Simulated assay, not measured.
Amino acid sequence: MSLNSINTNVGAQIALQTLNSTNAALENAQNQVSTGLRVAGAEDDGAIWSIAQGQRSQITSLGAVTDSLNRASSVLDVAVTTGQTISDLLNQLKAKALEGSDTSLSTSDRAALNDSFKSLVSQINSAVSNASFDGGNLISSGAPNLVALSGPSGSQKLTIAAQSLALGGANVTISASASFSTASHAASLLTIINTSITNTNAAVAALGTEANQVTSTLTFVSNLTDSLTSGVGNLVDADVAAQSATLQALQTKQQLGIQALSIANSSSSNLLSLFKG
């Protein structure tokens, strides 16, 4: 048999405890629905939050790696495009020198060919000078190798070898002042130009291979970033649909708890009716 007391209202205490528990669960559900996160901070689940933060650090680092690789890719794209242009110009130089080696040409015709020849040489020089992206030029004379990040630790790096295509260099052996005035002189230039064409094509091919490697590394880093992001989501993201349903149920439970507490609180005042005549 329950005891009716004006000093201790057990029913109200139980109702209050239940309401407080409901309010706490309701606040948690509201936070998950509003933030979309099951673990928004260390107080929600310290172990999971710590793991997620570690993975977020990796994701941020991979963002820096992506930026580095994108810059390298842009520098390479400019170098490859310019290298292909230089190869085309060397082919045109070969044609001009071959025409100039024709002994049946008049002096004026050979002079006109020489002017075109020198113009092509000048275009090669200009192309090399302008083959820069963000200060990086892989085909200028004495160009340093390009080093890009390839991993989040900072110790993993991708080294891209420079390929000088400057006039008078190891690949483009023809000099900036090259010209011809006689058929024999023009013929002698053909050997130099053929060597330059062979070397240039090999250098551009090497740059193209490096570009493919950078692209492959970018793809890997992108896929790894997506996987890590998905993994963090699996750890900390809330099931918003389930929490929305829970939220509605808890709101109903809260209303019932308030009513139960009100009823329990009124039980003490009901004792006064015993003393009414």
Rank of each mutant, 00 (worst) to 15 (best):
L207W: 02
E43H: 02
Q17G: 09
A260F: 01
I139H: 01
A203I: 02
L69V: 11
A245F: 03
T85Y: 13
V172I: 12
S106R: 12
A112H: 02
D88W: 04
M1F: 05
G135C: 12
A148F: 04
N212K: 09
S181A: 14
L16K: 13
L207N: 01
V121A: 12
Q32H: 06
L274G: 10
N270D: 13
L190Q: 11
L113F: 11
L218T: 03
L120I: 13
T85W: 03
T191K: 13
V65W: 08
A148G: 09
E99T: 13
Q255L: 12
S188V: 00
E27Q: 12
F180K: 01
N223W: 09
S175Y: 06
I14Q: 10
G168Q: 03
D239L: 00
S267N: 10
A72K: 00
S196H: 01
E43V: 06
Q123H: 08
D102E: 11
Q84P: 01
A245Q: 14
L98I: 12
A52Y: 03
Q251I: 04
Q55Y: 15
A47E: 13
A162L: 08
A148Q: 00
S230A: 14
A183S: 15
A95M: 13
A187R: 03
S140G: 14
Q13N: 11
I14F: 07
Q248F: 05
E210M: 07
A24F: 07
A127Q: 09
T217E: 08
L189V: 07
L3G: 02
S119G: 14
Q123G: 08
S126C: 14
P144F: 13
L207H: 03
N199L: 03
A143R: 04
G46A: 15
D67I: 00
V39T: 04
Q84G: 15
T18R: 11
V221E: 00
A148M: 04
A42P: 03
V214D: 08
N270L: 14
L37K: 15
G233F: 12
S269P: 00
V204N: 01
G233E: 09
N201Y: 11
L165Y: 08
L228R: 07
S104T: 15
G83Q: 07
A205C: 03
D67S: 14
L26D: 05
S150I: 10
N31E: 11
S57Q: 10
L105Q: 14
Q254P: 07
V78E: 08
S104A: 13
D226M: 05
T173R: 08
A186M: 00
L113M: 10
A79H: 10
V240K: 04
L274F: 15
A183Y: 04
N114W: 00
Q13W: 05
G41E: 05
S216I: 09
S101W: 02
A12L: 15
N20K: 05
S230I: 00
G100T: 08
V128A: 04
H185M: 10
A249H: 10
A25T: 02
V75S: 13
N171D: 12
R56A: 04
G231A: 12
V240C: 09
I48G: 08
N212D: 12
A170Y: 01
V78H: 01
S61I: 00
T209M: 09
L272C: 09
A64W: 07
A203C: 07
A183W: 08
S184C: 03
